[in-house]
Structure formats: C-alpha cells, structure tokens
Amino acid sequence: MNAKNQNIILKTKNLDIGYISKKKENRIAKDININLNKGELIALVGGNGIGKSTLLRTLTKVQPALNGDIFINEKHLNNYNNLELAKEMSLVLTEPISSKNLSVFELVALGRQPYTNWIGNLTTTDLEAVKKAIQLTNIEDLQHKKCFELSDGQLQKVMITRALAQDTPIIILDEPTTHLDMYHKAYLLKLLKQLTIDTSKTILFSSHEIDLAIQLCDSMVVMTKDQVVSDQPCNLISKGVFESLFPKDLIVFDEKTGSFRVKK
C-alpha cells in the first residue's frame, strides 16, 4: 500500500467541481476520487458538456474546487503559489496564444520562465532544456519559423514542446487532438506515449479519441453523468464503463475491438 502511495503524483479526494455564480452553485460533477501515477499517460474521456474541461481547470488551479481536496506530491493544491505550481505542472490549453508573432524557439524558451531571473535571461541550463525539448518532439526544422506560419498540428507540437521545456513532473493537455486529422491524432498521442517513456513524466489529457486512448494509454479517467471512474483501459472495458458513456440509441461499444460503432 505504501509503495503504491509513493507512486501517486496527483490525487483528488471527494472533489466536487463546478461554477459559483451569484451565490448559486452549479455543481457539474461530484465525489471525484482519482489517482494519477508517475510516468503514466492518462486520458480523460467523456461526452460533451460532462465537465472534462472544468475538471482540468480545477486540477490546474484556474478555478477553485467547490468541495474536496487535490493533492500534488501529497501537498494540498491550495498551498502552492503560482511559481511553485509552475514547477510542478505545465499546460497545453485549447485557447490560442495571444501573439503569434513569436518564433517557435522564443515560444518554447518561454517555458523556462519559472526558472529564469527577473528579466528572463536564458542560462546554458535553460538553453539545454529548450534544445532537449525540441529534440524530443522532433521539431528542429520548425524552430526558426514564426507561429503564424505553422499548421494546427505543428502548433500543437510546438505547444507540447513548450510544456516539456518547462520540465515539470506533470503535463496537462486540454483536447490536444482537436482540429487534427486522423493521422496527426494518432501521431500526437503516440508522441505523448513516447514522452512518458522517455522522460517519465505524468501526462494527463482530455480527448474524444476513445479508441486511440484505449490502445495507447496506461490508464483512463472516464466521466459519465453518474460517476467518474479511473482504471486501466482493459479493466474499464470489462467493467462495461464505456457502454454508459453515451445514450444507447445511436452508438454501441464493441468490447472485442475496443471501439464504438453506429447502430444499424
């Protein structure tokens, strides 16, 4: 049990998420108990509007939890200040970056900000970290391009590189595969899997690519209306969790292939 605990990097305890507006609580999901292990690739799946983004926003301290606790390395999330948290987790968000006039290298180098001095000078350690991140994602040929010259897929890779340069034990990505074609979706998720192996970082991402996630992830967090379950993909299949993911009138889950198909 103890050995198992040491392997946990992020943990939630009876977590309730949602929004507070004008004294009215809009509770989106409650009693979330999940553990994320070190060095694993974890997918967060669920239907539209089920609260995936809200959960990610809560885990990353963008919005407060309604109830319950989040622990990173057994320290409560509320006890981290921005700078401390920036050294624990890095983000890839769905929102576009404000300025696309940055070069790819400059953008990736911004990932080093938690470590640089008051004016942001890069030391040799920082430059090495940037170079290493660029090598890991294989974007050497892009590094002198401007961000507005990149395709969606390239930009996504660059944003992941930036998160890698930040060199945090946890990387969280919000729907990194949106807007990508099937090949690039598979490519990107395989890249994430490879990164967990190469760098032993924990990578949590939300996605609608359930088939791909089942094949590639070490573990999955499935959000349905009634519950939030996290386990290894094969266990989730045998528990029949995926059947409850969507209304049954249109698509069904095929346990043998691990994918959904349209009802005839």
Binding site: T60, V62, N82, L83, E84, L85, A86, K87, M89, S90, L91, L93, E95, P96, I97, S98, S99, L102, L107, L110, G111, Q113, P114, Q166
Partner: peptide
C-alpha cells in the same frame, strides 16, 4: 504574449 492562463501557468 501567450495569454493570461498560460502566463499564470508559467508562475
């Protein structure tokens, strides 16, 4: 330059 949320995540 990256946006408010990214800036926050950079500490």
């Amino acid at each position: 330059l990256l946006g408010d949320n990214y800036a926050k995540s950079l500490g």
